[in-house]
Design a protein around this nucleic acid. Structure first.
Lengths: 240, 240
DNA sequence: AGATTATTTTACAATAGCGTCAAATCGCTC
DNA sequence: GAGCGATTTGACGCTATTGTAAAATAATCT
């Protein structure tokens, strides 16, 4: 392993120095690789140290324990996911369909951009400290309710079938999250393509069946349908 | 722990005697509970032994190692899932929509009937021996291709949108499998209700946009639909 | 009852990995 | 190049747990 370069900044002693943060990050990256490959228990601190080219006790200068490495790792990921869905919800488009599509895309994308970390996260809940687990739980709950709220709004507007919002949200999140287990960045499809397909599947999965004229009184449902039609049209028209 | 009752069969020394199989099963049940709760590495053989009321070395009479317990545990589950989807595929209804609905229901149900074992399975792939992992992989692949074949057939028949069958299968399986992480048997909804909802979502997710415009790429069908819609709109809007 | 087999236990290595500490080294400032 | 804080290292103790083997107990058969 190459020596870690130090930048020549005069000083930033107030908070964490840049150099320290740098190696910290290197540790986290190596750890996610190894944890994802061999599991948390299957990875010793020695393995991590070898990966970076230092000795085992050096790690204790950056993290108090093995568990703290794990906790730090998974916290970043969940918080990131939460932030994204909160952002989209705040953007509050008036169309739940559009919002849901965006949320699914964002979630799927975020996961496929960090598949390793996500796999670790999904597989190691048991080893988290109580405090870390609590952080996890609130973040997960936040994402879930964001999805559920959008779906609920869509149901109220008639853009979605009358499904149980909570359950539908869990189902759709499952669709997204599962990708951590199978997505490969060198596969035939890009993360963006997959995310789009999933978003399309998601909105379709709870879209009301078109009942020709039946409940024609429902204007917003009709408008929602038109929006989708236009999307389809746009895609078709854009093709060579 | 109560003594294990022995049946008075003369002898069945050829294969495994019934009594031995009984305690074996008890060990597996206890193990899944503990593995699911505290993780594989977080569970010692001592914990398992305590749960059943024997001493630790007694376990070695039934399993050669801790890993063998895990392997035996997860093998049962995956094989069961594979069997189910194979059955449904063999039943070969002529309607891919109906088949897909049934497969999703079966998969979701099977998982919600064994959520503990499934959580263990999803979280411990890393600790499996190479041989056990191979069994895993082929079973998983079998389920996946069963799903993909149905979807492919549906696409060919025009019952589904032209999605990538492989990818859609993964997405739908994700929806099902994820339930292992959130389903609770004492929740408001029963496993059957949830499975049905998921099946409905699944078939909708890849159903073509329009029932009456058979092929989605058909522009004139889309335009015709719009004209109709506008008529409806006009009537509704004209109302007092 | 006595013999034979099945099952469980007590006791015993052996190992791997975590966390700690004081000493050594590095990089920089004066 | 002496001094000082930041960083790394080697050596150590410790615990938890796995797996084994021979002895003890329970069950079954003749």
């Amino acid at each position: 392993m190459t020596a870690v370069p130090r930048n020549a900044q005069p000083a930033a002693p107030a908070s964490v120095p840049a150099s320290k943060a740098l190696l910290r990050q290197a540790i986290l990256t190596a750890a996610s690789r190894l944890f994802a490959a061999n599991g948390f228990a299957g990875t010793s601190l020695q393995n991590i140290a070898d990966e970076i080219g230092v000795t085992r006790p050096a790690l204790y200068y950056y993290f108090r324990s093995k568990d703290e490495i794990l906790a730090s790792l998974v916290e970043d990921i969940t918080i990131g996911a939460l932030k994204r869905s909160a952002q989209i919800e705040a953007r509050s488009s008036n169309s739940p369909t559009a919002s849901l599509r965006q949320m699914v895309m964002a979630q799927a994308r975020w996961i496929m951009q960090h598949p390793l970390e996500f796999r670790v996260l999904l597989r190691t809940e048991n080893y988290l400290s109580d405090k870390a687990k609590a952080v996890q739980d609130t973040a997960k709950r936040g994402i879930l309710t964001a999805f559920a709220r959008i779906i609920e709004a869509g149901v109220a507007k008639g853009e979605f079938r009358p499904v149980d919002p909570h359950m539908a949200a869990l189902a759709l999140l499952g669709m997204c999250n599962w990708s951590a287990f199978w997505f490969s960045s060198d596969g035939r499809k890009s993360a963006d393509e997959i995310a789009e397909t999933m978003a399309e599947m998601a909105v379709n999965s709870i879209r009301p069946a078109r009942e020709n004229g039946k409940d024609a009184g429902n204007l917003s449902a009709l408008l929602a349908q038109w929006r989708e039609d236009i999307d389809i049209f746009e895609k078709v028209a854009a093709k060579p």
